[in-house]
Computed example of a mutant assay.
Amino acid sequence: MLRPDLLLQPTPKGLYCPPGDFYLDPVRGAVDRAVISHGHSDHARGGHGKVLAHPDTLAIMACRYGASFAKATQALDYGEPVSINGVTVWLSPAGHILGSAQVVLDYKGLRMVFTGDYKRRFDPTCASFEPVTNTHVLISEATFGLPVFRHPDTGREIERLLHSLATFPERTHCVGAYSLGKAQRVIRHLRLAGHDAPIYIHSSLEKLCAHYQSVGIDLGVLVTVPAGEQAKAAREACRGQVVVAPPGSFEGKWAQNFPDPVIAFASGWMSIKQRAKQRGVELPLVISDHADWDELTRTVQEVNPSQLWVTYGREDALVRWAELEGRRARPLRLVGYDEEVS
């Protein structure tokens, strides 16, 4: 069987496949050929020559970067194999956001699976994670790769938001959520919990929310909050309502201009009280689009690879856990990927 380091190699630009001559999620400069796991900007950049990804990821990249974000694109549905210079490539759902995928490489009897970012819990806005069997090398993220990170039930966090809304009906509830994936997920969970009122959104969410709606993900009635001087009067209508906005909008006075705002934030990092305090968050919502410690370790046990390679985050703890389990493991030390969109 081929040695794994001959099929995939960590480089400053990202993971490189020499026999296939392509990169996985390259983020440092444009490359001739890229396979992209999902549409977050720390994994999917514009300017590459050829890009292969799930159709939803390609649509998201076009939505964010314009239709000409790459010289050529190839859409690949889940489970559909394609050969790139003799390397068979196929995608399996990652459960991270709409279109997110694990990238599976089969070559000369060796199977390597790159998870990209993933989670295992229910998400009504994307396909659920599917473990890939008969895997020799699993390349796993480790954003929350410490035993302290055990995320609560998402439904319970949504109920906390709705309880606060009912308790303080005169206050605007401003929820910080990353613009791609997290914002739409929070909105859809609110709908499933019975919140049928219009949900107000920051203008930067408008295009992505419209895309989610266009592929059949029902987000209900969304109202864009106007900007500029006219916004002050319009924001009075948000009293007692939910407003969803990207984290960057909370750095100035955008959220503070709403009537008596309750500042909430949806992120796995909200389990760390100091982070919530630093951001001035009154209602921390522990809602993550990444696997927590139990999901990470359960995935390794289910996939049962001969080797575990760990990247993106708390690598050492997961590597050490794997070694104590009797597994071969190594950290990759890839840089350039953002843990704040979690």
Rank of each mutant, 00 (worst) to 15 (best):
F129D: 00
G79K: 13
T143L: 15
T115V: 03
G39M: 02
L91N: 08
D5P: 08
H195M: 08
G109R: 00
Y16N: 05
D42C: 11
K71I: 11
S214E: 12
L208G: 00
A59Y: 07
I187D: 00
S164E: 14
R327Y: 10
Y178H: 10
I158F: 13
S342A: 14
E315A: 04
F129G: 00
V148R: 13
V335Y: 09
E251G: 01
S92D: 08
V137Q: 04
G66M: 07
I139F: 05
T73L: 06
P284G: 10
E251V: 10
I201S: 00
F258A: 03
T135A: 09
A317W: 01
A233T: 08
Q9K: 11
L146S: 09
L180C: 05
H48R: 09
R279W: 02
I139K: 00
I187E: 00
D106F: 04
G49Q: 13
I84S: 02
V31L: 05
H290N: 12
E282S: 14
K232V: 09
E340T: 12
E80K: 14
W90P: 01
L165W: 06
P246Y: 13
G280I: 13
P198W: 00
G20F: 03
K277C: 06
G39W: 01
E170H: 14
E206P: 00
L91C: 07
L334G: 04
Q74T: 09
A237D: 04
S164C: 15
Y337P: 08
T143R: 15
R111S: 08
G29V: 11
T133S: 13
V225Q: 04
K108R: 14
P18E: 09
L110N: 04
P246L: 13
S140I: 08
V262E: 04
G145S: 07
A70N: 03
D77E: 15
D21S: 15
S83W: 09
H96M: 05
K50Y: 14
G252E: 09
V175H: 02
L296E: 05
S92F: 03
E251D: 06
L15Q: 01
D316S: 06
S306C: 13
L146T: 12
L324D: 10
V175I: 12
E339Q: 14
E282A: 15
A317P: 01
D316V: 08
V341H: 13
D153Q: 13
D32Q: 06
F149L: 10
S68Q: 11
V103P: 02
T125G: 02
V31T: 05
R320N: 15
L76Y: 05
R150M: 06
V137G: 10
D106N: 08
I272T: 11
G86E: 05
I263M: 14
G336F: 02
G49L: 13
I187A: 02
E325N: 13
P10D: 04
A237E: 06
R3K: 15
E339L: 15
L318C: 12
V225S: 10
Q230L: 12
E170W: 13
A266Y: 02
P152Y: 10
F149I: 07
A70C: 01
E295D: 07
G194R: 04
L105R: 00
D153L: 13
P12A: 06
G155N: 10
R121N: 14
K71W: 06
